[in-house]
Write a protein that binds this DNA or RNA. Structure first.
Lengths: 96, 96
DNA sequence: TCATTATTTCGGTATTTAGCGAAATAACAA
DNA sequence: TTGTTATTTCGCTAAATACCGAAATAATGA
């Protein structure tokens, strides 16, 4: 449960969590919604995984990310929703 | 309420908040308890102020820092207590 | 005004972080 | 085996952050 705070300190990572709050998504789907290279996104995934905020499951070549539903995580997503992903968000696709 | 998450991402800043949760303190008192230079600490104070997590009041030459008690802040300090300041904390004086 | 105490601002360096494109890995189908 | 799609790892650069000591600012008392 090491660096949850650090994981949450990035607007991009908060947006990833926000997307995953609506439903599970593959790395590619997330990539379609967040304007950042795949490699950069992969780095963010690693941070989120290290913080235990997301879990993955592989199905063939695609990897699906899901929020790690746990007590701590509940509190955190509550906060994400409470405070928004950031003042003016990265928001490039919120509902898409 | 801009970067609360960023403010919380530093172990030193989380420890400052933890200290202030017990009582208000002057910059000097906090300096006595956290092993970091006064100038560095001052930088951390700025981050905490920018995030609206602390407020100050001057009395002569001393400046006292207090937690900014507000709805958001309540949730946050709750989290700080819940998760600790970090795995192995900076903790050099918790009760001192 | 000069000295004293408390705190901040000012250079400066070192570490961390975010970002990229290209190459590597993984799973599978032909 | 070759090819295709999905994702990650590997250098790399640029920007942000943490840290320090020294100088500057602020408030006050002698």
């Amino acid at each position: 449960m090491a660096d949850v705070f650090h994981a949450l300190s990035s607007p991009v990572r908060r947006q990833i969590l926000k997307l995953l709050k609506t439903r599970d998504m593959t790395a590619g789907e997330i990539g379609d919604r967040i304007p950042v290279s795949k490699s950069t996104l992969s780095g963010h995934f690693n941070v989120l995984k290290a913080a235990d905020l997301v879990v993955t499951s592989r199905d063939g070549t695609t990897i699906t990310y899901s929020l790690n539903t746990s007590v701590v995580e509940d509190v955190l997503t509550l906060m994400v929703g409470l405070l928004g992903t950031q003042e003016e968000e990265t928001r490039d696709a919120d509902q898409a």
